[in-house]
Amino acid sequence: MTVQRPIDAAQPGVDAVTTRAPKAVKLENVSVVFGRGEKAVTALAPTTLDLEKGAFLALVGPSGCGKSTILKLVSNLLAPSSGVVIVGGKEAKAKALKVGMAFQNPTMLPWLSIERNVMLPLKIVPPYCHRFRAERKGEFRDRVHALLDKVGLTGFGDHFPWQLSGGMLQRASLCRALIHEPDLLLLDEPFGALDQFTREELWAILQDLYLDRRPSVILVTHDLREAGFLASRICVMSPRPGKIISDRAVDIPRPRDIGLIYQPAFVEMTQELRALIAQVRK
């Protein structure tokens, strides 16, 4: 596998990374503190960050640095202790954007088949929820199966979560995050527990799905190659209490080929990131 394109042959506008572009997410001086008084733990130091519409942002950093906290803030699973989180022009709790989220664990509901698990967002999120009863055995079912086909889970819709391997569950989890065609995709180390080959396969699948609909994406990961391969922008966070210490664009045209990660320029970029994280960990 070789890639002809040199790494810095940036094509203008490929990933719409310009400061003028409309923002999908804006964090303004947001901090998170757990507990009170002497026992208070600062999970996230005051952080300002924004994400352009349609951009693919990777958050990397040592474990416990508040990467997942940022995702929880954006998905309104957590309220900020100070500052505001703006999603789609409104506060996060207003749910102005359709959000799809994939967690570190696949978190499939064990009493539902894979098909019904993947269909879950269609049952909850408007406008789909209004048609759920009528379409769950028709159009919605076909949609779920089309998506399962794309991630290589053809024929597993009728299986239950415990009948599937970890990698298969992560694929299903990805489907569940995407089934309702979200404007904003939040991925919390979704491939962390997988072997290298499955991971690389899923990177390629995720890239295809991203290029399909171009949602705004925040990917939390500690895999620098994953960040470099998928993202159009990489933010590096310091250890707890976390804050963003580096913000760089990745100007590699898409679609990217997996062979890319062995090219010298790519390796150099990941080395730089690695050195940066190693430095702040001390």
């Binding site: 309104n76 699973l77 749910k95 967690f103 509901l109 909850i124 999120v125 569940r176």
Partner: peptide
């Protein structure tokens, strides 16, 4: 974690 799946969807 199971509740978070639905909360993140705005349930």
């Amino acid at each position: 974690e199971l509740e978070d799946v639905l909360k993140s969807l705005g349930a």
